[in-house]
Nucleic acid binder design. Structure first.
Lengths: 191, 191, 191, 191
DNA sequence: TCCTAAGCGAGACGGTACGTCTTGTCTTCCA
DNA sequence: TGGAAGACAAGACGTACCGTCTCGCTTAGGA
């Protein structure tokens, strides 16, 4: 197995396609954007598209890989676990037109699901060490993690749907205020 | 304006179509079910289908109208507000094959959205009277309602995805345990 | 078997339907007129339409039955056989809007076929007695009759398509001038 | 503007579709043949069909383009103008099953109309030079051309409907015998 | 004059074909 | 010779009409 230096054009094509999709989402929404639209905008052949991505959904998800990798590398570390939410609220804010175009649509559901998976393992791994001390908690740890992530996404969705009436910091506070009490009580330790 | 007696056939057709869809969802999933499948199963003409429903999605949603109407009529009344969750957990349990076939798919997102709308107004109307006394709360009432509904749906989803490892009563307790503390603190009054 | 007096409503319904079709043909053409259009215009139930006519085509043809019966009763008699053409040219002229709306379309083909059948037997019966004397003619009598009728219809079509640039009398002369020489020569006797 | 070499597949697809239609016409008639039948027989996608032809009618007409082009190239030249009829009678004879399946139906009307247009200009262009000498003729040249073409098609139709009881040569003679005298007289010169 | 069978309107229904649309694969040809 | 262009198979979609049918109301014409 040879280790190849990746063709520089490959990165270029993927980037162009991603940019084409993003601009099209903002213009006409993800659902109304067809593969044909994307490759027309990107000046790319149909087969080229499918050489790089399984389908339109894969292309969309790939756009969030950067965010995921950044978060993944940064981790939670010694910060207040709830602080991660702030990063995400801010990211949404800085890409508002894109998020706005998707929220409430099928594409948003997909993104949520994608985010859910990643954030879930991030949170669970953060909670596990603390929880391992306690034998038995009234609420299973997995459910708590799922609850935290879902609550965050729910607030994010609400925030975007209502045109961001509060700051990212305020939203983080609200999120923490609504979620932390129940989690702490349910798990039996301070998160 | 004449008051017409409604054609008895209409109700029958709508019911047959709904039943056909439900059975097909269980067999092959909502997304893989085509309109053709439905009308074949229901022994109904294509145009008849479109005379009654805008599309496949509308038919699916109509299937939940009964549940919605039942809840709507029953209301929350004097019960513990959180008890409504039990009704819904139980409903899901008693229609498990149907729910199971949809959870995690696009159809589930749609149902969630449909449920969200209805439950949101139900909850908000339940909270409003209590909240009107207090001038200012750290958390806006709308956000709290949104949070409650989303949390419920998140737990329901988790429960179904994991093959209902707990009873409906246990899930209601967990739901209440995770959600109530934050809401009470955030709103400044006992829900 | 009782002989009933026919219900007066029946004739009325048939007439109303025929009138509705004729007016619709003039307005939007026969092909674009649907059964729904007709029964809407006629204020008649769908089933009533089908109780009276097999389909739209049958209704159209029925409109020409009057003309056919009139010609049939009048016959050719002692007149110049070619004079019948004049009657028909004049009929077309007096119903120009209707004919104009059909000529060149599928409906015109149907009318032509309908007319062909009737006129063919009219002409053949007119020629037969004269031809029976001669044993053998270079051109079969049936072909000659077919030729005469087709030529007439061709000229009628041309005339209507070109907005009737000549009088009905002129067209009759042209028709006779083009057709008679060949027929007389082919049949071997004066028509 | 780049001159592209046409994709070889295109011609193939069009040919296959045409062949599929022809065979289906012979088997079940043009009117009963659906687009679905054609694409099934041709092993072609539905969209491919519509990428090449506007509709079923267009495909049918395209099948006669070869014949038209052949005649067009060959022209009338120095031959007896009436000889063209022989070519056409013979063509019909050699494709009898196809013609037989259409004659008398709507499809035949369409073909007749298509043929009429082409043959009319062929004949008129053939007559014009001869007629320009004469100032005034009792019968307009356009009518004469229309008459000739219609007469030919009428005889062709009769011939096919009656299972070709005469040879193509005989039919040509009959055609000429019936038509030429009137035309020569009407135009005032020998055709 | 009554009453009864038929005509009738309204429109739901099963069914068929249409032309459009989008997807993911596969082939051709150009640079 | 590798990738852009785009032809292609597949198949679901929503629309348009058709001809059949069921349902009650109305009404003509025989009793």
């Amino acid at each position: 197995m040879k280790k190849m230096k990746p063709d520089r054009r490959v990165g270029r094509t993927r980037r162009i396609l991603s940019e084409a999709l993003m601009s099209l989402i903002i213009e006409k929404g993800y659902e109304k954007t067809t593969v044909q639209d994307i490759i027309d905008r990107a000046n790319v052949g149909r087969s080229t598209f499918y050489a790089h991505f399984l389908d339109k959904d894969a292309l969309l998800r790939s756009g969030f890989d950067n965010l995921r990798d950044a978060l993944s590398k940064k981790g939670i570390g010694n910060r207040d676990g709830w602080a991660v939410a702030l990063d995400l609220f801010q990211h949404a804010q800085s890409h508002y037109p894109l998020y706005k175009a998707m929220v409430g649509k099928h594409s948003w559901d997909m993104i949520q699901q994608y985010a859910q998976k990643f954030l879930f393992s991030l949170i669970r791994d953060h909670l596990k060490p603390k929880g391992s001390a306690r034998k038995k908690t009234p609420v299973p740890l997995d459910i708590a993690a799922h609850f935290i992530v879902s609550s965050f996404l729910a607030l994010l969705t609400w925030w975007l749907e209502h045109k961001m009436p509060h700051t990212a910091e305020q939203m983080t506070e609200i999120f923490k205020g609504l979620t932390k009490p129940g989690v702490d009580a349910g798990l039996g330790f301070e998160t």
